[in-house]
Computed example of a mutant assay.
Amino acid sequence: MALIRDIATVCKSKNAGPFELTLDVVFDDAETYRKVKATGVLSADLFATLYSVSPNAVQFTEYDAGLAFKATLPRLVSAGDIGDTDVYGAQQHAPLLDVDIPV
Rank of each mutant, 00 (worst) to 15 (best):
A65D: 11
G83S: 10
L3G: 00
A90C: 09
D98L: 11
V103T: 07
D64V: 08
L73W: 11
M1R: 05
A65E: 13
K14D: 10
T49Q: 15
S54L: 07
Y51K: 08
K35R: 15
T9F: 02
E31G: 00
D64N: 13
V58T: 06
V99I: 12
S43P: 11
L73K: 11
Y33C: 01
V103Y: 09
D100L: 13
E20G: 00
V10A: 01
V26E: 13
V103P: 05
R5T: 02
D100H: 08
S54K: 13
L76I: 09
Q59W: 00
G40C: 06
A71S: 12
D6H: 13
R5I: 01
Y33I: 01
I7C: 03
E31M: 03
A38F: 03
T9P: 00
A16F: 09
L3I: 00
A57G: 05
I7K: 02
F47G: 02
A44R: 08
S54V: 03
P18I: 01
E20W: 12
A48Y: 11
I4S: 05
A8Y: 05
A71K: 09
V58W: 10
D84K: 03
V26L: 10
V36I: 04
R34K: 14
F47E: 06
S78K: 15
K14P: 01
D64I: 03
E62P: 01
F47P: 06
A79L: 10
G83A: 10
N15E: 13
R75D: 09
I101F: 09
I7Q: 03
S52K: 15
I82G: 02
R5A: 14
T85N: 14
K35C: 02
A8S: 12
T49I: 00
S13I: 08
Y88W: 10
G17C: 06
K12D: 11
P102W: 00
Q92Y: 12
P74K: 05
E20H: 14
K35G: 13
P74F: 05
I7Y: 04
A65L: 10
F19S: 07
Y63Q: 06
D29F: 04
Q59N: 13
L50E: 12
S78C: 09
Y63V: 12
Q92T: 01
N56I: 00
T85K: 15
F19M: 05
D45R: 14
